[in-house]
Design a protein around this nucleic acid. Structure first.
Lengths: 103, 103
DNA sequence: TTGATAGGCAAGCGGCAACTTGCCTATAGT
DNA sequence: ACTATAGGCAAGTTGCCGCTTGCCTATCAA
């Protein structure tokens, strides 16, 4: 079993909040943003006027779910979207037809 | 724009609860179950000892999200899984590489 | 070294969601 | 008609989640 997070219920919990989904949108559009960048972008582009700590807590949830990965450089912490945990979470219920029974 | 539900945030909300995901599991395994069938199956197979009303409320959430559809026959109400809303909810963040730049 | 910037920790508050409880309606069997 | 079964409605409780507030640490620039 892998050590990576995001294999359990945390992914669903993380996706449940609309602000967190907006954060994923932002990171999908531009990787490697800092906390303050994400804050100002959410504020200006999406009229989400939350405090820095609120966004920080959201990022922590996303990171616990494995949807966001971080790297530190000096006093900056850059956030990157990781779509890995998203790829197969719905396969649990979607029954794929075998494309063609070859005769 | 279609009249069907499940195009908004309700799908994520519905998927956030582990009991609701188990219900989807059950319906994926066997379509057309009644409320009481779902209750007893959750209880015996998954040790989920919730009241009938609790399950009923969960089903209402799933139906509002478009993940479950119902049909009435006499005093029975049958529940069917609809995977439609699941198919594209993650495409929002997953960037598909164009398969091959031809030459 | 001082101040400014980027971020972290933890306690506290308010609202909502999950669950229960009690009662009610509708269909089917006897 | 009466009873049992399948389900619905609505109010009340509890616990958790999102958010704020206040204070603290770390890095960099002057």
């Amino acid at each position: 079993m892998p050590i990576v997070a995001g294999m359990g219920d945390e992914v669903f919990k993380a996706l449940a909040d609309p602000t967190r989904r907006k954060i994923l949108d932002e990171l999908a559009e531009r990787q490697g943003q800092t906390l303050f960048e994400i804050c100002s972008r959410l504020s200006t582009k999406h009229q989400i006027g939350l405090s820095r700590q609120a966004i920080s807590q959201h990022l922590a949830v996303l990171e616990a779910a494995g949807l966001v990965e971080t790297r530190r450089e000096g006093r900056y912490k850059f956030h990157d979207l990781n779509t890995g945990p998203l790829e197969r979470i719905t396969d649990r219920w979607i029954r794929r037809e075998p494309p063609e029974s070859h005769r």
